[in-house]
Design a binder for these strands. Structure first.
Lengths: 206, 206
DNA sequence: CCCTCCGTTGACCGATTCGGTTAATTTAGT
DNA sequence: ACTAAATTAACCGAATCGGTCAACGGAGGG
């Protein structure tokens, strides 16, 4: 990889990165042409090869970049600071939306990369996966205090259900392209409000 | 299209159809090679072209076939017979699982086809879409009786939320390939039980 | 004004893959 | 053994692939 890439104006770097995210997220590794990425970034194929030695290097660079961005935002929005469960979800979602505004196809790329079947790529992806996302999550769930929730509620199921609904909503939005993050944030707020109204213990007016 | 295709043993027809569903669901129309479909079906490319005039014809045949299968199952499982909402969802899901057992990639193909960007294909898909799925759904929602649900519940939001969770779950399963419909049916049963426990009016032991 | 970088590109390369055709081979019925 | 249908290998021209390379053009420095 040519380090001069990082000297490029930030906007141009991002254009190239986003072009990579998009093309690689829409096709398998093998069927993602460098020419298409270059075109989407508004540069020539030659220049793309000037900055990245070959396709595989660009792919792995994008993978690492995705992990870096994710952890950056997770930190910025203090998503691991334990508080109220719903507030944590809200913070997590807000971080996700901010990412989607800057890198709309990053999450789609990450999923695709994780399940990529090309032997060479798949090996490298899974090797580096452990490096980034060790355990971390899902311990929030264990430490969940039943107090504050509707009595008798299956907390584990509630959490999985909320997770699936978020993914389902996000996926539906991603499918139809041109994502309106403002609208999505409103929708998700409504969802959260709904969850709170259903799952949280009703405060009896004493 | 060569009508002799329908004289083929049902198992072979299905093999070809499923090969098409899979390849077209994993790549865009343009990047789905006929050779790959033929190989996945265990026949030669020449034979595929013997039954289908060209790629476009095969694609549209699969689209129509998908619609046909869907309506068939929706009928068989009497999914539009109005009863309890949760039971309707259960029936709908059961139909979906039965389809996934016989045609694992059909739903993924349908979604991909609907959002296909290739100009020629996209036009034809949307032309025929109205023919199949006019209005039908979503009127169940309007006719929903608040009686029987927890008081004050936002029914519309509840329905959307359940829909998204189902989609999110299904999507997660689809991603990792090799889908275990038995497990999925169990998971979905648990989900339904959870929803009932949360949304349905609690019967006070009189 | 010329020289030298260096970001950038168009043109090109050999290899591969594409949709589709054709002629021949295999199979099955009689 | 004859025939008709099922099935395929071999092939076609065109397009596309990852990657290279020589050259262009503008900015800076003397």
């Amino acid at each position: 990889m040519n380090n001069r890439f990082f000297d490029l104006p930030a906007e141009k770097q991002q254009r190239i990165i986003n072009a990579g995210f998009r093309v690689f997220s829409e096709n398998s590794y093998k069927k993602s042409p460098m020419s298409e990425i270059a075109a989407a970034a508004g540069i020539s194929k030659s220049l793309l090869f000037h900055y990245f030695l070959n396709k595989k290097e660009l792919y792995m660079f994008l993978w690492d970049k995705g992990a870096e961005i994710t952890m950056q935002y997770l930190n910025d929005y203090s998503c691991y600071e334990p508080t109220d469960l719903f507030e944590m979800m809200e913070r997590g979602m807000r971080a996700k939306f901010r990412i989607m505004e800057e890198y709309p196809y990053m999450s789609a790329f990450a999923v695709k990369a994780f399940y990529e079947k090309d032997a060479e790529i798949s090996a490298e992806i899974h090797k580096s996966y452990r490096k980034y996302f060790d355990i971390k999550a899902s311990n929030t769930l264990a430490a969940l205090d039943p107090e504050g929730f509707v009595p008798g509620l299956d907390l584990k199921m509630m959490y999985r259900e909320m997770y699936w609904a978020s993914e389902g909503y996000l996926w539906e939005m991603l499918q139809r392209g041109e994502l309106d993050t403002a609208q999505m944030e409103k929708d998700f707020s409504a969802l959260l409000k709904f969850w709170r109204s259903v799952y949280q213990k009703k405060e009896r007016s004493v």
